[in-house]
């Protein structure tokens, strides 16, 4: 007899999907846990980690932000291979403002976030009409061009970069600032992508013809998505400038483009939460593999392949399914 897997919503999911969930603690917890857990993790982790892993946590948050930024673009039908562009532009904006005008990090961070978003949007505006791989190629190339421009024109310290940036007042402010931003971005944009507005953005990816056919200018909406993604990416770059107290050409490195994509794909694209989860798994994994020296990248690659083969839907989708549904094998008639 042939069998197929049947998936049924858990009783508690059904019970907690309307207002009566408010009458029971168990059901409230079921609804609240997925939201409370990440907040608790972000509150507690900095306290329990040693100084080395606290630094790693900063990278985790930054990669998570870049992965969310990537995922927002991808959900709008733009596959970026150049998250380093957003990261680097934000980093240089903050660095320049701090270096030349001596602005405090608490000013450079928000200013660089907005400036970076504007610059990235303007840079990519001319190629919004490109589809699929053509758009991707351009995003890959622009950061590489910017590196050469900085090298050749020697602006912003040229190959030396700019150093001696003002750090944030303490490592605790660093940690909790970036984690708070991460949580706000995660929950905020999950909400936005679930709204009618988000539906239009996702519609552009699924079937842009039907969005145009509603009288909607898809390029205007794509530009907005680009602005959001640019803002998130630029913030992460600006933040790292103040953490490293340095900004230079490495901010346009390929790592900042590739790692966020890996995180989003492994974690489960299309949810933002998956992208975040992916960063929380891949970045520490990469650190843990440091002991392997030259073979590190090999092991890392093997892990990536395993994740993708075993859970092609992404880790978050898998967990979400287990949380909401029970599965059982049932026989198929005929």
């Amino acid at each position: 007899m042939k069998k197929r897997k049947e998936r049924i919503d858990r009783g508690i999911k059904v019970r907690s999907s309307d207002i009566f969930a408010l009458l029971s603690w168990r059901e409230m917890l079921y609804l609240g846990a997925p939201r409370i857990l990440p907040v608790v993790v972000c509150l507690v982790l900095p306290l329990v980690l040693g100084p080395y892993w606290q630094k790693v946590l900063l990278s985790v948050a930054v990669v998570a932000l870049l992965a969310i930024s990537w995922d927002i673009l991808a959900q709008t039908g733009m596959v970026s291979l150049g998250q380093a562009l957003f990261f680097g532009v934000g980093a240089y904006c903050a660095g320049a403002m701090n270096h030349y005008w001596n602005l405090s990090p608490f000013l450079t961070l928000p200013l660089a976030t907005i400036m970076g978003a504007v610059i990235c949007t303007l840079l990519l505006l001319p190629v919004l009409r490109l589809r699929g791989i053509y758009f991707s190629m351009v995003t890959l190339i622009i950061p590489l061009i910017l590196v050469r421009v900085i090298e050749a024109t020697k602006i912003f310290g040229g190959t030396e970069g700019l150093s001696g940036m003002t750090p944030l007042p303490s490592k605790w402010i660093e940690l909790y600032l970036v984690l708070a931003v991460l949580l706000c971005v995660l929950f905020g944009f999950r909400r936005i992508m679930d709204s009618d507005y988000g539906l239009v953005l996702k519609g552009i990816n699924d079937n842009d013809r039907s969005v145009i056919n509603a009288g909607i200018n898809i390029y205007w909406f794509k530009a907005q998505s680009l602005f959001f993604a640019g803002a998130i990416g630029s913030f992460s770059g600006a933040f790292m400038t103040h953490v490293y107290m340095f900004v230079g050409m490495p901010v346009f490195a390929l790592d900042y483009s590739i790692l966020p994509i890996a995180a989003a794909v492994v974690g489960g694209p299309g949810t933002l939460a998956g992208a975040t989860l992916g960063a929380f798994i891949l970045v520490p994994l990469s650190e843990a593999l440091r002991g392997f020296g030259g073979l590190r990248i090999v092991f890392y690659g093997v892990f990536l392949v395993i994740f993708i083969v075993v859970l092609p839907e992404g880790i978050f989708h898998y967990i979400q399914r287990k949380y909401h549904q029970i599965e059982r094998w049932v026989g198929v008639e005929k």
Binding site: L199, A214, I216
Partner: peptide, 12 residues
């Protein structure tokens, strides 16, 4: 019914 949201989001 969610398929109707995009036309209802139209500037028109």
């Amino acid at each position: 019914y969610k398929n109707m949201i995009i036309p209802l989001y139209s500037p028109r």
